[in-house]
Design a protein around this nucleic acid. Structure first.
Lengths: 161, 161
DNA sequence: ATATCTGCAAAGACTTTGCATGAGA
DNA sequence: TCTCATGCAAAGTCTTTGCAGATAT
């Protein structure tokens, strides 16, 4: 690195285990990125994460954020979605506290995204059933899913169009 | 246009009606693009569509393809999805023959995408139910949805990883 | 007739990559 | 110590936009 000195990373615990388990190192920038993702309930773009991390520690570069996010997606820790605005969104999928999966409601007009988990229980049953059927028929091993509804939010519904 | 002369478009029928109904014109490039989308059962990227259209009629530009696809998405005729390879995919959603909606099964390893419609009936019931609940609770007017399962296809499942 | 569309090329936006150097175990 | 990870900046990709001139109705 060119002139950046991180304080030694002696973080430990759950995350370090996750990384080590996957054969990766739990570095300081990675820890910062996880902190940002953990403490936000929003759907962050790579740049959002970068700006946030940058606020706390300006030494971290955007490329590292992209690389780390990709890594986390592969590890299944973070899920990546696309709400149609041309940039990927990332959000924590699981953490020390367990899963926090939810689905999305996207306004096609203003881009508002609402997370909901209220109907997950009802959906879960069917999803599991469908997953079983699909796995069998297509010999697929299903690990995750993405479910989004598109439409108009309360505000946009008003203003016709 | 700079030096391109299309043959006059006297196409008519269902599509023309769809366009006129939305206040748009049914032009020759648009017809070509629809032809390509209709005759392919694949998930085409904008460039795929462009290349195909270009084969039949080199005068059509890529920008027009993008503009038309976006228009079709807005009209609800085409659906746009993202399988994680950084480019948008388009596929016909409805046509003169009616709806042909389906969901996706995406291999996270090799990128294979399988369409399935087998379980749609079962899913439809729950989706409708969830839609009603969501509409009510969040005052959303739901128009469409996207549902994708991610995992490993038969081939990739074999080679561990 | 005229508001809408189009091709071309250039600009924009997001993401990835190469390389020398620093850090984790 | 010996890989793996990072910052910076440059390059890559996909997509959008401006504009003069063609087109649908």
């Amino acid at each position: 690195m060119q002139g950046h000195f991180y304080r030694r990373n002696r973080g430990s615990g759950w995350w370090q285990g996750q990384f080590k388990g996957c054969g990766y190192r739990f570095t300081f920038p990675r820890r910062l990125i996880l902190d940002v993702l953990s403490s936000s309930s929003m759907h962050l773009s790579a740049e959002d994460v970068y700006l946030e991390v940058h606020k706390k520690y300006p030494g971290v570069g955007l490329a590292t954020v992209y690389r780390t996010l990709e890594l986390l997606v592969q590890m299944g820790v973070v899920s990546k979605s696309d709400f149609g605005d041309g940039r990927a969104r990332y959000e924590m999928n699981k953490g020390p506290e367990g899963q926090r999966h939810h689905h999305h409601l996207v306004c096609s007009n203003c881009g508002l995204v609402i997370d909901y988990a209220d109907f997950i229980d009802e959906e879960a049953k069917l999803l599991k059933k469908v997953e079983r059927g699909l796995s069998e028929k297509y010999k697929f091993e299903i690990n995750s899913h993405l479910m989004q509804f598109y439409g108009l939010c309360e505000k946009c519904k008003g203003k016709k169009d």
